[in-house]
Amino acid sequence: MKLLVRADASVEIGMGHRVRCQALIHAFIQLGWQCQFVVDRRYQAFASPDDCFIGGQSDKESKTEFLSLANRADLVILDHYGYTADDITQLYQHQANLLVLDDMNDRGEFCAKWLLNPLQQDYCKHIEYPLTGSSYALLRSVFQQQKKSQTPSRQLLITLGGTDPQALTLPILTALLASDFPTKYIQVLLGANAKNAHQVIRFCRINNIAFEQGLADVTPLMKQAKMAISAAGGTLFELACMGVPTIFAQVADNQTRSLEQHVPLDWCRCVRFDNASKEARQQRIELLVEEVAHRWLDIEWQQNARKMARSLVDGDGANRVAKTINSYFAVP
């Protein structure tokens, strides 16, 4: 059985789409599927040599080329905000076995056999099988294997995503030091393609701050974290699974709904940066650091937050999705 995944990654797009699709691909491979990413040539620098490359001149060219590829697959997974409701319906007409990954539920009505959203959302009747809620959060297999009862250390984990598109790591570090937060408790995690990584690493070395970059397995650092400062993409579900109370920096509009659902559960807090002007940016960084300082000393909140977070995500979402869809094809 052949599976194609349409997803791109870049500094602007981020790495979240690719990371969660990789988790899903791993689960399908375990079930015997042949899987391949289909990527726009413009984003080849963030792809793998084994990917199938299409287009390269425009979104329209890429979409047209992908339609013909979709015809020759048994299943297509689409994780791409560049596809409108009409684009998705057109793709469905070429390949009825279509799984759409979504976060915002803001594209209107479209057709798909399966729809996956790790948030509780209602979709139109044109979706045959909606898979919604945190039990379908797509995490890499290492998260399911972790023991979550271990007592965390006193580390503050700072991780602003695979690319840190707003280059927030360095100004947050600077503000933490200005507030006299102890550097010995700070652990920085940089993505392989993080903006301003060289400047961040230099700052960390000068100030004796622990850092890692491009780790394949981030779970040991999350397991050791007392709290985290993080971007609010797919890492939100990873931190929930590991039971890490977090102050999220919202860096993209598509993170709005996940934060709207998770912040009221009180295992995390949020400061928004995607709509901040240059003048407001520093003020919000200081607000974030103040929130960290306040929550760092609130042991009761941390204990309740860890318990709540762990109850939300069990780490088995990718296997759950793959087995559900595989069973559809196994029916005679």
Score class of each variant (00 low, 15 high):
Ser134Met: 13
Gly133Pro: 00
Pro171Met: 02
Pro118Met: 05
Leu138Pro: 11
Ala194Asn: 10
Gln121Ser: 12
Lys113Ser: 08
Glu109His: 07
Gln146Glu: 08
Arg154Ile: 10
Ala167Gln: 07
Asp102Arg: 01
Pro165Met: 00
Gln146Lys: 12
Leu138Ser: 10
Lys148Gly: 11
Asp103Gly: 00
Asn196Leu: 06
Asn193Trp: 14
Ile127Met: 04
Leu190Phe: 06
Leu138Gln: 07
Gln155Ser: 09
Asp122Met: 15
Lys148Met: 13
Gly108Pro: 06
Tyr185Lys: 14
Phe110Lys: 12
Val142Gln: 15
Asp164Leu: 01
Gln146Arg: 09
Tyr185Trp: 15
Ser149Trp: 10
Asp106Gln: 14
Ala112Glu: 08
Ser135Trp: 12
Gln155His: 11
Ser153Cys: 08
Leu116Glu: 01
Leu190Met: 13
Leu139Arg: 02
Leu157His: 00
Arg154Asn: 07
Asn105Tyr: 02
Lys113Trp: 10
Leu157Gln: 11
Ala194Gly: 13
Leu177Phe: 02
Met104Gly: 04
Glu128Ile: 14
Ala175Met: 07
Asn193Ile: 00
Tyr123Met: 04
Ser179Ile: 04
Tyr136Thr: 11
Asp103Phe: 03
Gln146Asp: 00
Ser153Asn: 10
Gln166Asp: 08
Glu128Pro: 09
Pro171Gly: 02
Pro171Trp: 00
Tyr136Cys: 06
Phe143His: 05
